[in-house]
Design a protein around this nucleic acid. Structure first.
Length: 333
DNA sequence: CGACTTTGACCGGCGC
DNA sequence: GCGCCGGTCAAAGTCG
């Protein structure tokens, strides 16, 4: 179990569950079949429109299939996570019972390392690799708060700029092995002692998506962020006790719904992401956020809050109808 | 002229 | 020990 696995897990859980919840939301108001026929019927006037409609239905079914597959993958991933977590807890308890903490990897220097772990590390080599990587990850989590933001941009653009309201100074750029796009390194330059760093790189899978990785916490307020600077179709909702922001954007690839579950956190340390189309943030420190139970709770809260929020439903309806209008206009030309 | 960007060099961790 | 790789430094270049 390494951090990349967890990142995948958390991103999947947000995106996919959101998807399934959207499906659920749509199903609540209109069963899927009806939803589809509503799309089809107005277009049954001409054969070409019929064709187009059936293509759309086909496409919709394909997407639904894909969502199902991904949901299954997510379930499997959560299952794996659960079992690993249980194992880790068992190992942790075992170590606590013995008054031991797993020894830190020998090769690593004690950079920002938890003193307890460092001091108690001893010559005993009983810990497994898995254990070591778990502890390494935990230490890293303690050391820095890491969050990721995905921003859709023009794939042809070459600049690696993610506008988030903070001032950044670029101090390096590298081409990494796993991604042909260069990775840019930024430091927060607004406050002289601000420790926050940012890495920006285009996604290897989708070059139109910029992946910004934030490390650390700003020790100053966002210089350019008025509290109400959310975009026109950006709204702030509360999922139970969990504040978040939601926005609907019409991009070239269609209306996309953004849920920012870190709104509360961002008010303190992370900037908002105006224009963000896909915004997933992994705050790795609280264990509870990672737990499947918590994620399930979040999903349920999200679903109920979204379906109850008239602003959201209106915006969603507008985005969907806008998309259909776009397609029917495009189909005519 | 100062602030910022670019880019090759350098450093340290890690795997073999 | 060696080489690879990600991250950082710092001199040179660019821009307003």
């Amino acid at each position: 179990m390494d951090s990349s696995w967890l990142e995948l897990d958390s991103s999947l859980s947000f995106d996919l569950n959101l998807n399934s919840q959207h499906r659920g939301f749509l199903n609540q108001t209109q069963p899927k079949e009806e939803f589809q026929t509503e799309i089809v019927n107005p277009r049954s006037k001409s054969p070409s429109m019929n064709e187009e409609a059936s293509l759309l239905v086909e496409k919709l079914n394909r997407v639904n299939e894909e969502n199902k597959k991904l949901s299954q993958l997510l379930a499997l991933t959560c299952e794996n996570y659960n079992s690993l977590k249980t194992q880790m807890e068992l190992l942790g308890n075992k170590n606590n019972d013995q008054g031991l903490v797993a020894s830190a990897p020998k090769k690593r220097k004690a950079e920002g390392m938890d003193n307890n772990v460092n001091q108690q590390g001893n010559s005993e080599n009983s810990s497994t690799d898995e254990e070591e990587s778990c502890h390494k990850r935990l230490k890293e989590d303690m050391k820095t708060k890491i969050s990721r933001v995905y921003v859709r941009t023009n794939a042809t653009e070459t600049n690696l700029v993610v506008k988030d309201g903070y001032q950044w100074r670029k101090y390096g750029q590298k081409v990494t092995r796993d991604n042909p796009s260069p990775r840019a390194y930024f430091k927060c330059s607004f406050a002289p002692r601000c420790p926050v760093k940012k890495k920006v790189q285009r996604s290897a899978e989708d070059r139109s998506i910029l992946v910004a990785t934030y490390e650390g916490e700003h020790n100053h307020p966002n210089p350019s962020r008025p509290e109400t600077s959310l975009g026109s179709n950006h709204g702030v909702a509360t999922l139970g006790s969990i504040p978040c922001s939601a926005s609907i954007n019409s991009s070239s690839s269609g209306p996309m719904i953004t849920l920012d579950l870190t709104h509360q956190q961002q008010q303190q340390q992370q900037p908002p992401q105006p224009g963000t189309v896909v915004n997933e943030v992994k705050n790795s420190s609280p264990d509870q956020v990672k737990s499947p139970a918590f994620q399930q709770f979040m999903i349920e809260k999200m679903a109920s809050s979204l379906t109850k929020d008239p602003t959201f439903t209106a915006a969603l309806a507008a985005a969907i109808s806008g998309r259909f209008q776009q397609q029917s206009v495009a189909g005519r030309w």
